[in-house]
């Protein structure tokens, strides 16, 4: 048994054969095994969508919540027990439509969690509706005459929200994906990993081939940008219209001390503590 399989619960995913999410699942498992994160300290949280099923295939403390609310749940888990490695996962609709409000605030709050979005630029689970990341003109069952508005740029949203780690990947580039996920998990703070993960069933435009043609791996670029510069990161995303893979931005926080676990603090008060609380009621 390969080492990464220690992070699999053995259940066969219900995803369509060839779905990009298989590669994300595998990459996540390899990254975790490379980092030797103990399963018992791992919590994988997911939203609703095809992508949201990912937590159900992990050998971890897995939580499959409701549509769009993966980040609040993940932040709650991390706040309660900072010793856990918390991985939040979901789709583009989950994260950038119904959950978009939580996204920028989670970025701003900058808790030490990793947020992996499997972006297929479509709603897979509901059988092919348009997504905020679908391109203008994109035809789906809910936009039969073409999508009216332009696509949202998740990396820009994350950067302006204050995320301290922003990276992109592609299901077709698994090696890079594993590296990025590892870096994201190791980063202290909110790590946003935006992964283009094709839906082979409902998105006939943004296919593996299409992504291979359009995506620019940053590692192959001669001119390196300053990853700690918010300005350069933003310019890069704007210039390349988001069609990038690799680490875009990282702002290493210094001297970060781990918050204490709240779980251990759930306890009864002593009589002295209680009397003191009572006295403090006086206006």
């Amino acid at each position: 048994m390969a080492k990464y399989q220690e992070y699999s619960n053995g259940i066969e995913p219900t995803w369509c054969k060839g779905c990009g999410d298989f590669s994300v699942l595998r990459s996540l498992q390899i990254a975790l095994s490379d980092l030797e994160i103990p399963n018992k300290n791992l919590s994988v949280v997911s939203g609703i969508g095809c992508s949201g099923r990912i937590s159900g295939y992990m050998k971890s403390y897995s939580f499959h919540g409701i549509h769009g609310r993966v980040l609040p749940v993940a932040q709650g888990i991390k706040a309660a027990n900072p010793k856990l490695t918390v991985i939040a996962t979901g789709g583009d609709g989950d994260g950038f439509a119904i959950g978009s409000g939580h996204f920028i605030h989670a970025a701003k709050r900058d808790m030490d969690i990793t947020y992996i979005v499997m972006d297929n630029q479509i709603y897979g689970l509901t059988k092919g509706h348009t997504s905020p990341i679908s391109e203008k003109g994109f035809k789906t069952s809910s936009t039969p005459y073409g999508k009216e508005d332009t696509a949202l740029e998740p990396a820009l949203l994350a950067l302006s929200g204050g995320a301290s780690f922003v990276a992109q990947g592609f299901s077709g580039y698994q090696e890079e994906l594993v590296d990025i996920i590892k870096e994201g998990i190791q980063h202290k703070g909110f790590s946003f990993i935006h992964i283009y993960s094709p839906c082979i069933t409902f998105n006939k435009i943004n296919t593996y081939q299409w992504y291979r043609q359009h995506l620019i791996p940053l590692k192959d670029q001669n001119k390196k940008h300053d990853k700690s510069s918010l300005k350069e990161a933003m310019e890069l995303v704007v210039d390349k219209e988001g069609m990038l893979t690799g680490l875009i931005y990282q702002n290493q926080r210094k001297s970060e001390t781990d918050a204490p676990s709240l779980v251990d603090q759930t306890r009864a008060l002593s009589k002295e503590e209680f009397d003191d609380l009572f006295q403090r009621l006086y206006i």
């Binding site: 949280v45 609310r69 609040p72 709650g76 309660a80 027990n81 409000g101 939580h102 779980v263």
Partner: peptide
């Protein structure tokens, strides 16, 4: 934590309670 809305608040405490507090 003062959250961005009530939806976040309830889901956040579901997360924290699941984790044991």
């Amino acid at each position: 934590i003062q959250t961005e809305d009530e939806i976040s608040a309830i889901n956040m405490i579901i997360g924290s309670s699941y984790a044991g507090v």
